[in-house]
Amino acid sequence: MKILEDSVKINRSPETIFQWFTHFTGNYRTWHKDHVTSRWIKGNYFEKGAVLYAEEYLGGKLEKLNFEITRCVRNELIEYKVLFPESLICSGGSFSIKPSNGGSIFTAALSFRFGGILSKVAKKRFEAIRLHMKEEGENLKSLLENESKLS
Rank of each mutant, 00 (worst) to 15 (best):
I97L: 01
F67M: 10
P14W: 00
Y45V: 11
S100D: 03
S38W: 00
Y28Q: 08
K134N: 14
S96V: 03
G92M: 07
I3P: 09
R71H: 13
F21V: 08
G103N: 00
K9T: 13
I117R: 10
G60I: 09
G43Q: 01
H32Y: 01
Y45E: 08
W31M: 09
C90P: 10
T16D: 11
K2P: 14
K9M: 13
K120I: 14
K98G: 03
E145R: 01
K64N: 11
K42V: 12
R125P: 06
S87K: 13
T22W: 08
K134M: 12
A109H: 03
L62H: 00
F18P: 07
I105Q: 00
V73K: 14
P14F: 00
L4V: 14
S111A: 14
L144F: 02
E76R: 15
H23L: 07
L4T: 07
L140C: 06
E136V: 01
S13G: 08
I89W: 04
Y45S: 15
G43S: 04
E138P: 10
P85L: 02
F112Q: 04
V82F: 04
Y53T: 06
E63W: 12
R125A: 12
R74N: 15
S151M: 14
L110S: 06
L110D: 03
I3S: 15
K120R: 15
N146H: 09
D6T: 14
I41H: 00
R125K: 15
N139Q: 08
F24Q: 09
S151H: 14
A108G: 14
E138I: 06
N11F: 11
I41N: 02
N75F: 14
L77N: 09
E47A: 04
I69Y: 03
K134R: 10
I117K: 08
G116C: 10
L110W: 05
S151R: 11
G115Q: 04
G103F: 02
I3C: 08
Y80A: 08
R29T: 15
G116A: 11
W20V: 05
T22C: 04
A108K: 05
D34K: 02
A54H: 12
A54Y: 09
E136G: 04
G92P: 02
L83W: 02
T30C: 10
L62K: 04
L144I: 13
F46D: 06
K81M: 13
G59Y: 06
E135G: 15
H132T: 11
L131N: 14
R113H: 10
F24D: 13
I97S: 09
S111P: 01
L52E: 02
K149G: 13
I117Y: 07
E86N: 15
F95H: 08
V82T: 06
G60N: 06
E76H: 13
E79S: 14
V8H: 05
T70H: 02
L144V: 09
L65R: 09
L62Y: 01
M1C: 09
E68F: 07
V8M: 01
V82Q: 02
S111N: 07
S104T: 06
E138G: 13
P85W: 02
R29G: 10
S119T: 10
P14N: 07
C72E: 14
F46I: 06
R113K: 05
E55V: 08
L150H: 04
G93V: 03
Y45M: 09
I10S: 00
N66A: 12
N44W: 12
T30N: 05
L88V: 15
T70N: 07
R39M: 03
L65M: 12
W40T: 01
E135D: 15
K48H: 05
S91M: 11
N75Q: 07
K42R: 13
